[in-house]
Design a protein around this nucleic acid. Structure first.
Lengths: 208, 208
DNA sequence: TCATCCAGTTAACAACTGTTCTCCGGAATT
DNA sequence: AATTCCGGAGAACAGTTGTTAACTGGATGA
């Protein structure tokens, strides 16, 4: 098992997490490329120079945030795609799961959506890599389905990317609807469900 | 026709355009929320205070950039969707058209992709409004097609949003592949084509 | 021709930025 | 018990930022 951290290491990780939390909060109303180092340290309640003990730059912190936001999501995506049952049930469950995740971690979702095409290259790269991993994993799960018989690897990956992108679009829509009345979120649910239904329909007739 | 502008108005518009051009260039490597007013005036070669003669703030300039980037695109989108011919031909033409547009106006495309979920609320709002207009127009064009018989207005709008989002995803992929060798762009073309093909397939079986 | 307008200039403001170097004190190691 | 390690503090650096006020000089319209 993992060795119990010394007081020192534990305190360091605690401060580091405080940096990540404070940055995430500040990033709700701006982009990473405008996030100042002093701004973050001020929010944490620590001297500006302490920042350098944990990150080389704000871009570096951004990459760490990408891992926090997406790193732990892989098992969830795998099981979601592979859930057995009627395709209609699977769609409903996937949309429900996205809605739930957005409601629970809105700042993480906002960060990813914002910085995916944002102004900081290393962060874009990190997100791109993670999303590619998602697509690969979805492809692997899709390949297990008997509906994938006769599909080329390339076509499966094409479909997987479509699903991943659709997931992000839906998450972003839920995010915009977060503060809105319940029926707005209901509208998003119905929209996303039908879009996934249409894609699934196209999938079923791909080999015609 | 439009009244010829006086020397004064003409010069003002020229400077204003210089602001937009300089800002767009600066925004290739950062986000709008980190774009400084002085930074822009320096690039234009003008005093900082001159900025206020044209824009209230950088956010205001951003909204103007949204109009420049998307405002003139509506007729193009309309005619693209409504082009007659085999659906396979239509897909190929649409993808080709996106590729061409990205190659011709990469900075505009980058700006839209970046600020769609960016840190400046009025700009996000402006982009959202324009994209909604696109979706409405696509819906109107789709409705003319005989394949749309039996479709509800709501389902047509759902499909239209799917097309618009797919258009943006594809544009963003072409953008990333801009500096890459030709075969990378070819890969994107093939990917986008197949994704559109699958969506079109789902569309054809929607009423089953 | 003369008064008015107005895009752009100059100067100055307090507040902020990232980064360096030096130091402190408690944890970790021997 | 003595020594090393190291996360964080403090002070100072040269530059930067947005915004204000008062100005200049050429185009505009009476």
């Amino acid at each position: 098992m993992s060795h119990t951290l010394g007081i020192r290491q534990a305190q360091k990780q605690k401060t580091r997490q405080a940096f990540l939390d404070a940055a995430l909060a500040l990033l709700e109303e701006q982009s990473l490329s405008s996030l100042g180092l002093r701004e973050v340290t001020r929010a944490v309640g620590v001297a500006p120079t302490a920042f350098y003990r944990h990150f080389r730059s704000t871009a570096d912190l951004g990459v760490a945030l990408v891992d926090e936001a997406l790193g732990s999501l892989h098992p969830m995506v795998r099981t979601t795609v592979s859930t057995t049952g009627d395709s209609e049930e699977r769609i409903a469950r996937a949309v429900e799961l996205i809605a739930r995740h957005v409601a629970e971690y809105p700042a993480h979702v906002r960060f990813i959506a914002r910085e995916r095409h944002g102004g900081v290259q290393p962060v874009r790269e990190a997100i791109r890599a993670q999303l590619y991993r998602f697509a690969e994993e979805v492809r692997a799960e899709l390949a297990k389905d008997r509906e994938a018989e006769g599909w080329s690897e390339d076509d499966l990956l094409m479909l997987a990317h479509l699903y991943v992108d659709q997931m992000l679009i839906t998450a972003s829509l839920f995010l915009e609807a977060l503060e809105a009345p319940e029926d707005e979120r209901e509208r998003v649910t119905r929209l996303a469900t039908r879009q996934l239904r249409l894609i699934t329909l196209g999938r079923a007739h791909w080999l015609d």
